[in-house]
Design a binder for these strands. Structure first.
Length: 218
DNA sequence: GACCAGGCACATC
DNA sequence: GATGTGCATGGT
């Protein structure tokens, strides 16, 4: 069933080439900036960082917080995200010295460590691990939860960990597959699975149950 | 103008 | 433990 969903989404949208970004640092920056934010706005913010020539771990660590906030302004929640971002890069620098070194860590251990950083929740941590670190770990986001629950693949009360376990145990543990799968869900969700769904034309529409969930919350 | 966006932390009951 | 709220810009 998860494989069928993948085939359908892939047939509709093709490979997504995620994560958009030219370096591991850029991907990490993107995961923080895109928290509850349209990717287009995140791109503007990253463009500003590139233009200011501060897309380096050490530079971001030492950049004045207000300057950082001003540069990432287009990404929204900019004062908050400036703190979270600097928090994270300083943590990486202090604890590991470099991104390369950080990604030599064991998956479970590093995930737990990242979750201790203020501003890094489960989705951001998993995105960093999968897309920057190329660990085989599945990313859950709001679209994933909506799609899985609306199709009745999982109970409506399922939390992040339950969803993650569901996808990871239902798919072969393949980093490239996890990469493409999450990207395709986001693409599908953006077009068809907003809070108020627009199922006409959705590649997963034929997989909806006859008397599927009537409650469209979340 | 209303709604939404590739979350997360913190306050309050 | 569950639920509510702040954070903010920009597109549709």
């Amino acid at each position: 069933m998860l494989d069928e969903a993948f085939q359908r989404m892939f047939a509709s949208f093709g490979p997504q080439h995620w994560w958009p970004g030219e370096s591991q640092l850029e991907i990490i920056v993107g995961t923080v900036l895109t928290q509850s934010t349209n990717w287009r706005n995140v791109e503007r913010a990253i463009d500003n960082l590139r233009a200011a020539d501060v897309l380096q771990l050490r530079k971001l660590c030492h950049l004045d917080l207000e300057k950082l906030a001003e540069l990432i302004r287009p990404a929204g929640f900019f004062r908050l995200k400036a703190k979270r971002l600097q928090n994270l890069v300083r943590f990486i620098d202090d604890r590991f010295g470099s991104i390369q070194r950080m990604f030599q860590s064991d998956l479970a251990e590093l995930r737990g460590t990242l979750l201790e950083v203020n501003g890094i929740g489960p989705e951001t941590a998993d995105s960093i691990l999968l897309y920057a670190g190329e660990y085989t770990t599945f990313v859950i986001d709001a679209y994933t939860a909506r799609i899985a629950k609306r199709h009745g693949w999982i109970e409506p009360e399922a939390d992040y960990q339950a969803l993650k376990t569901f996808f990871e145990s239902g798919l072969s543990p393949d980093m490239q597959l996890f990469n493409e799968y999450h990207a395709l869900i986001v693409m599908t969700g953006k077009q068809y699975c907003k809070p108020t769904p627009q199922c006409e034309g959705c590649p997963l529409q034929s997989m909806l149950q006859e008397s599927g969930p009537v409650d469209w919350r979340t």
